[in-house]
Design a binder for these strands. Structure first.
Length: 459
RNA sequence: GUGGAUGUAGCUCAGUUGGUUAGAGCGCCGGAUUGUGAUUCCGGAGGUCGCCGGUUCAAGCCCGGUCUUCCACCCCA
């Protein structure tokens, strides 16, 4: 019995038309990456499970796709766990998964990159700048703009603490969205400012809870944020200490003044504020992006330590961010390489695609690949077309010959469906007279020309 | 992972309180005499109503399970 074909949940096929548009996004991003001195890198789809676990927070670990051990996976389960299962005792799902699986699909491109850097540290010249455009997988529940397989386009600099890198990343973001004709808002914050806030609240150990609650401010409002913090065991005193955070509106200089008054005497805050100021001052005029300090921007990934970025589209209905990144001081430390600070940015190609589609920003000419189609009138005519075909292709023109001798209507329809702008007709008559009849598919006009003139007509 | 909605021809959807051969538009295929698409006219093919099970004399319609897609939460690109 034939089974109904489908792709797994949250994964998609990409048609030729979609691929042309996706390639346009990838090419645009890659071109800008190269302009800033980043070089390409690829890593395997799978990593050792231990490379990935514990890097993305508790929530992140749950979303990692684990790969079942090949062969008899049951054999890799320890006798201790087997005994528990036989007795019907409950085994912690994470523990069981770790025994059945020692590989997993990568969850992002940053952690594999850190692994790569440590593994190849002796071959690399630092600061090391790489870009990487590959799919990542998350076992999330699909939604609008959320897929289980999607592409990230990352650029990272590792082995440099200089803020020039952050500044360049903001400019790079601006360049890319300018090239894509998108207006965006780049939100920026610094984890150090967030730590300082947790510190003055008197409950520094609650940074993560505070930050994830604060992150929701624009969505659920101050009251609910405070409610959530209380639920997480943050004291009322601490919450009222944090309150000035909710009144940090205005331009960056205004925000900076308020922050200086409030957090000025906390050393870690000063560090964060100073680097934010440096970034704001040095970035200069941006073409498509608006840079905004957002004190509620937190970002869930555990490894960020300094500046953090997030980019949202100003047009369209995409709810999530289309780009995100930040500085991580010690991502390589877990793999045994200390003192290797890095900073990077990740573009979500699939979400950018969705925004461009919705706002109709894809260039119209992307659909055209073939410029000219030779209609097929039979063997000898086709052989003649073959020669012309070669000349056109040598001249850099995309052209094709319809492979079968079928009725004209079908051949013209093929050209029409494929968006081919010109059709060349060489039948018995044309062959005899040594001419080519060229039809412009847009206006239906048709004229007979010499073979030598063909190129100038269609280009 | 939690809660809610959805699923009928390739696509977008109709389908009345369960009752004979399940419909439309678009698309597809064929035709309207010679070598012409997109337009027009005529004709045709295509569905075990997501899948499995149950209730019933009878189920696209009711019930349970399962999968998909979508929405909210969580989180994120």
């Amino acid at each position: 019995m034939a089974q109904k074909p489908s792709t797994p949940k949250g994964t998609r096929d990409f048609s030729p038309q979609e691929m042309l548009r996706r390639k346009y996004i990838f090419n645009t991003i890659e071109t800008v990456f190269r302009k800033y001195g980043f070089l390409p890198l690829e890593t395997p789809a799978m990593e050792n499970l231990s490379t990935l676990t514990g890097k993305y927070g508790e929530e992140g670990d749950r979303l990692i796709f684990k790969v079942l051990n090949s062969g008899d996976a049951w054999k890799s389960v320890s006798s201790e766990v087997k005994a528990m299962l036989v007795k019907g005792e409950e085994v912690h799902p994470g523990k069981l998964a770790a025994e059945l699986s020692d590989k997993a699909l990568r969850y992002d491109l940053t952690v594999p990159f850190a692994r790569y850097v440590v593994q190849h540290q002796n071959e690399l010249t630092f600061p090391f700048k790489r870009y990487q455009v590959q799919p990542v997988w998350r076992a999330d529940r699909p939604q609008k703009g959320r897929y289980r397989e999607f592409y990230q386009c990352d650029a990272d600099v590792i082995g440099s603490k200089s803020l020039l890198n952050e500044i360049e990343l903001v400019q790079l973001i601006d360049d890319i969205f300018t090239a894509l004709d998108m207006k965006v808002t780049v939100k920026i914050n610094d984890r150090k400012v967030l730590s300082a806030i947790a510190e003055i609240s008197g409950q520094p150990e609650k940074v993560v809870d505070m930050v994830t609650a604060i992150d929701k401010l624009d969505k659920i409002g101050q009251e609910k944020v405070e409610e959530e913090m209380r639920a997480k065991g943050i004291t009322d005193t601490a919450i009222s200490t944090i309150a000035p955070l909710f009144r940090l509106s205005g331009t960056w200089p205004e925000q900076k003044n308020k922050l200086d008054d409030w957090l000025g005497n906390v050393p870690v805050a000063q560090e964060g504020l100073k680097s934010l100021s440096t970034i704001f001052d040095a970035v200069g005029n941006l073409k498509s992006a608006t840079l905004e300090f957002d004190p509620t921007l937190a970002r869930g990934l555990d490894y960020y330590t300094g500046a953090i970025f997030e980019v949202k589209a100003n047009e369209g209905t995409m709810p999530g961010s289309i780009c995100g990144g930040g500085r991580y001081d010690d991502l390589t430390g877990i793999f045994g390489l200390k003192d290797m600070s890095g900073v990077g940015i990740s573009f979500g190609a699939d979400r950018i695609y969705d925004v461009l589609l919705e706002t109709e920003k894809f260039p119209a000419e992307l659909g055209q690949s073939t410029r000219l189609l030779f209609a097929n009138f039979g063997e000898s005519e086709a052989m003649h077309c073959f020669k012309l075909l070669r000349q056109l292709r040598d001249a850099g023109i995309a052209a094709e010959l319809y492979p079968d001798q079928v009725k004209m209507a079908k051949q013209f329809k093929y050209a029409d469906d494929k968006g081919i702008p010109f059709v060349a007709i060489i039948g018995e008559n044309e062959l005899k007279q040594g001419i080519v009849t060229v039809k412009d598919m847009k206006n239906g006009e048709q004229k007979a020309v010499k073979a030598e003139e063909l190129l100038s007509i269609i280009s």
